[in-house]
């Protein structure tokens, strides 16, 4: 088996999930310069809501991909409502406050959501029922599962759709204009509050899909799963250049690949002293290196395309 290729494939799969979550961070940052620390928890809620849907329907005989589709169709509106609620309650009243205030508010929302999730779903790890086919495909000495293929494809389709939305539509143009100069966008007739809310809607919908895919992939979840995932996705956004859509996509994929290559070779490199369970170290080592050598991120130059 080709370990290198295998780790790259695993990395791209994991990375495309990071990218979907990172887009939520970067879009909100691009438009209101706020790091929405509660975004990871929105992903967690998406994952657990879809798990609940799956559990309920599995007992009635549903199975396979249609069940995932149904669960994501429930998770998306739930996460959108949650994202809109967070923006309205925790961020909008602080729009003109010093920058630290909304940041603290974001952390507060994050903790609150974790605890609410613990009340609803309990504190134990929840396991997803086996509903998906275990089909695997061989490519060039490596193995890719059907679940992985679906994750890669759905992430690619969503990112392409987002790109078209932002670059080619009237709404996307208004979003970019608002990110660059909200006061003037208002003079053009853009309802800035609605554009900001729309950004949360898009980010939360992506988070719902990411949550569902994570559940389908790892088949385990609990109320704290959003924390590390959120931190990694935020790292990916910073890695690519926060505020940049292309940066979030590239940063997510890159982070996933680096992490998996690190995990794959860590044992060999250290002669077994340190194992693959240290793979998280790579993510944050990358963050530190990028912040030292290229603080604006890989794609984040002065001319970034913010949204």
């Amino acid at each position: 088996m080709d370990i290198f290729l295998q780790q790259v494939i695993n990395g791209l799969v994991q990375g495309s999930i990071y990218a979907l979550v990172a887009l939520g961070y970067t879009m909100v940052y691009g438009i209101i310069e706020l790091v929405n620390f509660a975004h990871g928890e929105v992903v967690m809620v998406g994952a657990l809501v879809s798990l609940s849907v799956i559990e309920r329907l599995v007992s009635r005989g549903y199975t396979g991909w249609p069940l995932i589709v149904i669960s994501v169709l429930v998770a998306i509106p739930t996460c959108i409502a949650l994202g809109l609620g967070i923006e309205r309650v925790a961020y909008r009243p602080l729009r003109r406050a010093p920058r630290l205030a909304p940041l603290i508010s974001a952390i507060g929302v994050s903790i609150a959501l974790q605890q609410i999730a613990a009340l609803i779903w309990g504190r134990n790890y929840l396991h997803y029922p086996d509903i998906l086919p275990k089909t695997q495909y061989l490519i060039g000495g490596a193995v890719i599962s059907q679940v992985q293929v679906v994750i890669l494809l759905s992430a690619a389709v969503l990112m392409a759709a987002l790109w078209v939305l932002v670059q080619r539509t009237r709404l996307g143009r208004a979003m970019r204009a608002t990110a660059q100069n909200p006061a003037v966008a208002g003079l053009m007739g853009v309802d800035v509050n609605r554009i900001i809310a729309t950004t949360f809607v898009v980010g939360s919908a992506l988070a719902a899909v990411a949550g569902t895919l994570i559940g389908a992939y790892y088949q385990v979840g609990n109320h704290t799963m959003g924390f590390l995932l959120g931190l990694k996705a935020f790292t990916a956004a910073v890695l690519g250049g926060i505020g940049s859509l292309g940066g979030a996509m590239a940063g997510g994929l890159l982070l996933g690949v680096i992490e998996n290559l690190g995990a794959g070779y860590m044992g060999k490199l250290t002669d077994g002293a340190v194992g693959s369970n240290y793979s998280d170290v790579f993510a944050f080592l990358m963050l530190v290196l990028v912040l030292i050598f290229r603080p604006s991120g890989l794609l984040g130059e002065r001319g970034v395309e913010k949204v």
Binding site: R173, R176, V184, L187, G303
Partner: peptide
């Protein structure tokens, strides 16, 4: 507006 206020990256 004063200072033109064009959207620089559009």
């Amino acid at each position: 507006p004063e200072g033109r206020g064009v959207f620089p990256r559009l």
